[in-house]
Design a protein around this nucleic acid. Structure first.
Lengths: 210, 210
DNA sequence: CTATGTGAATTTATTCACAGCA
DNA sequence: TGCTGTGAATAAATTCACATAG
């Protein structure tokens, strides 16, 4: 095991590899080469080998990778080797969709609570989760939830985040199109849907410009 | 105007700058310095100046940037100087949320049609848009829609994309957690919600490991 | 005098080419 | 022999420092 710094881009690709490995496993495969995994993940084979090499390498020369072992290693690196509970703040259109999103369980995530500040929504259930008053975010502590997903309007984002941090949340997936300020120890990943769409026209050759 | 290659990361930041400029403008500002814009966008001032320098620079030395002018320049670069029509494929939980998503109009996007292959949904309306049979994607041509958003299950993504490309769509925002294959001229941007969440635990110091 | 614009330096990430192990 | 693992080379992006224009 070598102790070089792990590139952020490598960490970004690990969940992708994990998903592909689960797919391979479901299809009955026991092992895969870097070439085979690369094809499914749509990256280069050397990129995969390099990425794994930062952690010491997980393969067997001349053979490839044992899927069960590799899956376990990546889960451990990403700390996905235990189920993570998360809470959702903001049960609007997007929030409701995220509550029902099937992809989270691929990685062992479970949304255990939902909050909103619209009194018309509080008390209602979306799937298995009852919507609670956003002012009760502070009550989370005993549950030891470390992750949160926020899908509130930009104007409400900072306040929601402050409450979550106060309640002990350590990582936030932010869908609000705004920068939020957090203490150094807290990690925020922002998905800004509209800005992603906004750079699409740049790459489209003009002429068919709508 | 200099003609160096534009870094992808610069293009990724331009929509963010645009959003911040719109905000500044709404607040009555007429001009802004790289320092001021940097604060709102949460990037470094020199990064902003460098980004703009790839296009020749838009500022006035000793003064800053005229917000109206800069907004126009960025819109032109990103080809957001005209309204873009887009279609949605997949009107499930996520798709419905995207149909109602208010952020798209910040950049002048309009979703003009929605498709699904669930006969129970076809014919119903979500907001102003009537859900059409996915087999009718081919009928798009006369409308000259160049952008599409897909929010279908992974298994259905490639077929949806093939139909869209056939119908003349040039750019796709893909929410399906799977690699899709397209001709070279077509640009795909994938937002993989679960893989973003999946790298969050990596950055959270252990101990509070849920 | 102020804040931009940009070469140059540095850091980070990707790609290559092949040594080394099963 | 085959496929991994990795140092070295290349490419890309960020950061710096300051000359330059208003």
């Amino acid at each position: 095991m070598r102790y070089r710094r792990i590139p952020n881009e490598t960490v970004r690709r690990l969940p992708l590899y994990l998903r592909c490995l689960l797919l391979l496993s479901q299809n009955g495969n026991k092992s895969v080469s870097s070439e085979g995994l690369a094809r499914i993940a749509n990256v280069n084979a050397w990129q995969i080998r390099k990425d794994f090499s930062y952690f010491g390498g997980f393969g067997i020369r001349g053979f490839g990778y044992d899927i069960g072992n590799l899956t376990g290693q990546i889960r451990k690196i990403l700390r996905l080797d235990a189920v993570h509970n998360a809470v959702l703040v903001g049960v609007g259109n997007l929030g409701s969709a995220l509550l029902a999103y099937p992809g989270f369980k691929t990685y062992g995530f479970r949304i255990v609570a939902a909050f909103d500040n619209d009194s018309g929504k509080i008390g209602k259930k979306v799937g298995d989760v009852k919507i609670e008053d956003a002012r009760r975010i502070g009550m989370l502590k005993p549950k030891c939830v470390t992750l949160a997903i926020i899908a509130v309007p930009a104007a409400a984002a900072q306040q929601a985040v402050d409450s979550l941090v106060e309640a002990g949340v350590k990582g936030i997936l932010n869908f609000s199109p705004v920068h939020i300020t957090v203490p150094k120890k807290i990690k925020v990943i922002t998905i800004d849907i509209a800005t992603e769409l906004a750079r699409l026209p740049y790459y489209i050759p003009s002429g068919g410009k709508e």
